[in-house]
Design a protein around this nucleic acid. Sequence first.
DNA 1: TCATAAACGAGACGGTACGTCGAGTCTTCGG
DNA 2: CCGAAGACTCGACGTACCGTCTCGTTTATGA
Lengths: 219, 219, 219, 219
Amino acid sequence: MTTDKPDAARPGKTPDASRRSERSRRAIFDAALALVSETGYAKTTVEGIAARAGVGKQTIYRWWPSKAAVLLDAFLDLAAQANEALGRDVGDGEGDAGIPDTGDLAADLRYVLRATVDELNDPKYDGPTRALAAEGLVSPDFGAQMTELLMEPQLAHYVRRLEAAREDGDIAPDADVRIAAELLTAPLAQRWQYRDRPLTHAYADAVLTHVLRGLSPRP
Amino acid sequence: MTTDKPDAARPGKTPDASRRSERSRRAIFDAALALVSETGYAKTTVEGIAARAGVGKQTIYRWWPSKAAVLLDAFLDLAAQANEALGRDVGDGEGDAGIPDTGDLAADLRYVLRATVDELNDPKYDGPTRALAAEGLVSPDFGAQMTELLMEPQLAHYVRRLEAAREDGDIAPDADVRIAAELLTAPLAQRWQYRDRPLTHAYADAVLTHVLRGLSPRP
Amino acid sequence: MTTDKPDAARPGKTPDASRRSERSRRAIFDAALALVSETGYAKTTVEGIAARAGVGKQTIYRWWPSKAAVLLDAFLDLAAQANEALGRDVGDGEGDAGIPDTGDLAADLRYVLRATVDELNDPKYDGPTRALAAEGLVSPDFGAQMTELLMEPQLAHYVRRLEAAREDGDIAPDADVRIAAELLTAPLAQRWQYRDRPLTHAYADAVLTHVLRGLSPRP
Amino acid sequence: MTTDKPDAARPGKTPDASRRSERSRRAIFDAALALVSETGYAKTTVEGIAARAGVGKQTIYRWWPSKAAVLLDAFLDLAAQANEALGRDVGDGEGDAGIPDTGDLAADLRYVLRATVDELNDPKYDGPTRALAAEGLVSPDFGAQMTELLMEPQLAHYVRRLEAAREDGDIAPDADVRIAAELLTAPLAQRWQYRDRPLTHAYADAVLTHVLRGLSPRP
DNA sequence: TCATAAACGAGACGGTACGTCGAGTCTTCGG
DNA sequence: CCGAAGACTCGACGTACCGTCTCGTTTATGA
């Protein structure tokens, strides 16, 4: 779930992960998220995180290669905690619970899309999310990690639910579920990114309606 | 077309735009774009741009408030040049030509979507575009400017073409053309951003197909 | 007189000395000397000097290669000022005034040796002098500079005065004036260095007596 | 002979000296001397010594308060070994053997002064000696220890030999033997320190000649 | 047509943060 | 149960850029 695997990834001496201070790790995550929320990503410095966490700078550089990596880990940790709190921690600990399948495709998707909207609007997530997205846009390696750890798992849930729907005959047999998933999520992300129009439940519902219309089986 | 309007916007003494050196302006744009392409946005510095352009640092700070603003202007300038080269410089110089209306909605949209794909895949645009998007994600003011100057005009073209189609009866009268426009462009942007799947003409066509199916008038 | 000649000595870009801020230079000297006196050399940091002088660290590193070099310059400056204050600024500005020649060798030497004792006992000079001597002991290049700029000129004065005395027949014609000069100064320096016995005028006089006895012309 | 007496000197828990590893002690001395000789005092670090000695850092800090103290001990140990090798280890283990008294004062002094010159020129001793002297110059406590343990015993030998000579009538009865001792040793130390002129047997002989001339009894 | 005021190149300045190094302390584990 | 190993906090290092501020040097009107 985490990214701090310097085992073989980074050059130089490899620190002994078994001796790592969990106390410091937590403090660093808390400090990083707090600072990004309070002052924005650009003004958040490694030095600041260390000071706020009551930790030596070296303890950060020992375990992460960059500010962005710290934040990604902190964010993943946050997400993991959230899932755990939901009592839905299933399977291999990968966390996310998937999309419910009540038999009513529209209702199920509406539920998760609205949840996504709420999350994107939550200031607690907004700052860090923007920071990560920005970093991922600009640095390919980091972006690859984000896509793999955050984005694709998310899309996979949609794909699975849509596949189930296709088997149930709820959507056209020739529909491309991957594309359908992207049609559902991308517009929300774009509104969030552009910031010029409100990102609301109503908007999510409208997107859903249009997409489902295109997926419905022909008579 | 450009953003350098310190006339009333910035505090302090206003430089006399009429005496501005066009030579320096061009050199700064070229240097900025080159450096972003070559070394990435993060490693591009104002000092570096100035050195490469053979220009004093102050000449940059005199006309732009930040590295991002320079790049945005450089990018807009690049786009303007591209449009001019196409011989389509119409109207007030806003440049973009809009979406052709041949009567065949699918064909028209396919054309522009494919062009968008090509542009996103062009390394000349990729670096600066990512840099700008990243900056916009993280700094609201800058993002607002980007949305207003780059994104919304783009979406507006889709909206206009789709409205025309609706009047022609090519799509359902109750379709929300704004949402339709977002459904068309957002998935492409997302693929470009995620970087884990190829962004191809075929993909654009598939997205188009799915969206149009949802828009088609009911019999 | 000063050491800051990066013209050809240091690698990288050479700063333009003509644009140098005299204000900063003075502030750095003052801060450096004050800190060394107050807290000792080891606890004096470049960062501390910069802060105390109200100067950016880079402004120090731009002009000096190390803490020790700053201090050497500060010290030379101090000495130059002292000489200037004495109204004895003669010749090429090298400052030092030489040893008086009243015709009475013993009296002349006693005068300067006692002055040296006073200087070594002056807390204002003690700290910086020890710091410089320590640095010179350990780093050959720096030591060479010190010897050349501080020590040898000093010895040269004694040598000149002794040569005059030899010509006057005040000391044996076969006496080695260089060695005599070293015999006069080295014991004082050693007492100062060892710190376990007081360095007094009486001591200087006693050394002088013994040395002169060895130099006196045989009857 | 050694300095490691944390018994009452240092705060905190006193380690049990009886269980101390002689193996580690030796390894630390060897490593310290080797590193100082090879890379200089400033670049020698406690971490480096520990690594080279195959010893934990704590094992050094348990027994010595500072890098300089380690080196002083190592140096004293080296000197003790040298004396032992000469088979002259007499008395309380203080080591040094004193100056021979063959009846020929000049010859005896020449012998030890030349030996001193050789020692100062020996690269094995040069590095550590400079390091210790530098530290002693700058930190009074350490300097006091050095003076007491290294310098004064040395001078005492000269004083004793000169007193014997005075009793034998070889030098003037009113000569100050302490000052004479300093006149003999200080110039050598100074040449070694200044490094700009060769420190040779001839130089030692010349110093000796001048000093003895001053000491000789008046006819 | 030239005087003069501006924009310009250059780059030193006071700062902030970087990423690294070592000091000295504290904890864990193996012989 | 000592000692190697090494992670920890702390603080300074020397570097890179930031954005501001002079410096002469063009340059391009407008008197």
